[in-house]
């Protein structure tokens, strides 16, 4: 098992964001966590990355506990997040942004070949190498954010709402790339989305989250047919 989360509780001051959630992600899987705004999806990702440490419960990566580790140690283990809203560095060039993704690595040759790899994945970024991140379009920024995370060579890639604010055609493109990353390099993917339809079509399994609790778990194809999910998240 790649990632296992058990009875995770997170509080912000007096506000409880997560009420003891449990889930797991197997190696090579694409798992999605869907839910409405404020359900606790981003908090879940932030706890995995060591930004918001849990009050209770445990997070384990490949069998060893990681919830007491610093964010940089967690990245070093191979967990990398593409944050909500992309958060690329606007005044730094595309290449500089990517180099920041490889901050913890010292293998120059490996970094160079990974640069070629992401430029292969997103040819548009290759054309924009020395352009400032802030001048890219929303879709290009999302591609850059994904590429920046890939530069850390993650075993587990966490994606927070990659479809946010993008045109349907671009969303399609981004999701196809996510699938490709999973297929070709075997990178395990944990995808947090509000766009339930797209996410469930892409994923192998899905979790539904409501008010800090996980309410449904199943194969993605089953969730797509689930009446509750259809009503609440697919607008059917």
């Amino acid at each position: 098992m790649m990632l296992s989360v058990k009875d995770l509780e997170v509080k912000y001051g007096n506000i409880q964001a997560l009420h003891g959630i449990s889930f797991h992600v197997n190696e090579g899987e694409i798992v999605t966590l869907i839910g409405a705004n404020g359900a606790g999806k981003t908090t879940t990702l932030m706890s995995i990355c060591g930004i918001t440490p849990p009050r209770k419960g445990e997070i384990a990566f490949k069998g060893s506990r990681i919830h007491h580790l610093k964010p940089e140690s967690i990245v070093q283990l191979g967990i990398c997040q593409v944050p909500e809203g992309r958060r690329i560095f606007p005044g730094m060039t595309v290449v500089e942004n990517l180099e920041m993704g490889a901050f913890l690595r010292n293998d120059k040759a490996g970094i160079k070949s990974d640069l070629d790899m992401v430029f292969d994945l997103f040819p548009i970024l290759d054309q924009r190498r020395s352009q400032l991140g802030g001048t890219l379009s929303g879709g290009e920024q999302q591609m850059l954010a994904i590429s920046r995370a890939l530069m850390a060579r993650p075993r587990l890639l966490l994606l927070d709402e990659p479809s946010l604010g993008l045109a349907p055609l671009i969303i399609q493109q981004i999701f196809e790339i996510i699938k490709k990353i999973n297929k070709e390099s075997g990178t395990t993917i944990f995808l947090v989305e509000q766009n339930a339809n797209q996410a469930l079509k892409l994923a192998h399994r899905g979790y539904v989250m409501e008010n800090g609790r996980i309410t449904l778990v199943d194969k993605a194809s089953v969730l797509l047919e689930n009446d509750e999910v259809k009503k609440a998240y697919l607008g059917l």
Partner: peptide, 9 residues
């Protein structure tokens, strides 16, 4: 806020 996610201490 984004910087720690890249493992930058």
């Amino acid at each position: 806020f984004a910087v720690p996610l890249m493992g930058i201490p």
